[in-house]
Design a protein around this nucleic acid. Sequence first.
DNA 1: TGTTCTAAACGCATATATGCGTTATTTTTA
DNA 2: TAAAAATAACGCATATATGCGTTTAGAACA
Lengths: 78, 78
Amino acid sequence: MINVKNKKLAAALGEHIRSLRLQKELSQEQLAYEADIPISQIGRIERGEINATVSTLFVIAEALKTDLKTVVDFKIKK
Amino acid sequence: MINVKNKKLAAALGEHIRSLRLQKELSQEQLAYEADIPISQIGRIERGEINATVSTLFVIAEALKTDLKTVVDFKIKK
DNA sequence: TGTTCTAAACGCATATATGCGTTATTTTTA
DNA sequence: TAAAAATAACGCATATATGCGTTTAGAACA
């Protein structure tokens, strides 16, 4: 990811997902297990290292017992 | 994309984005121009051929003068 | 029929998300 | 402080999203 705007977007998304995960009192490992994706992927997303795909966000939403709308409901820091 | 669930997700997302685009009376070319992404990408997303990344969905949302929440507000066909 | 507009469907190179490990670091807890 | 738990930070292979172009197909229209 070289684009600055994308980095900020990914960072904001990551913080939001982390916040949702902690609200549910889940560890990254538990969330990864429920979403059936590698824990490394959860970490990279929360740290804002990658621009996740919609399919990954979807399984994360399911694992958090919420929906895509909630997962992308965040504000970007300028 | 080999996963069946991901295909259905991408198809539902594509139909929804197409619907939003047509509501705004934009061609794929116009949307691509506004979002500053290749028209081929718009087509592939609308046809459900790919699992778009959040950054791509974000620029599409901006081009449609809406937000990410609206772009991912769709139901998946079973 | 020919022209224009729109979208589909290609091909291809490159960037990067994903998947799966391991090791290091930090935080929490006993 | 020591141990355990949680997370970060690697490396690496593979799948695939993206970017950019061209060609084809279809519809609308003159």
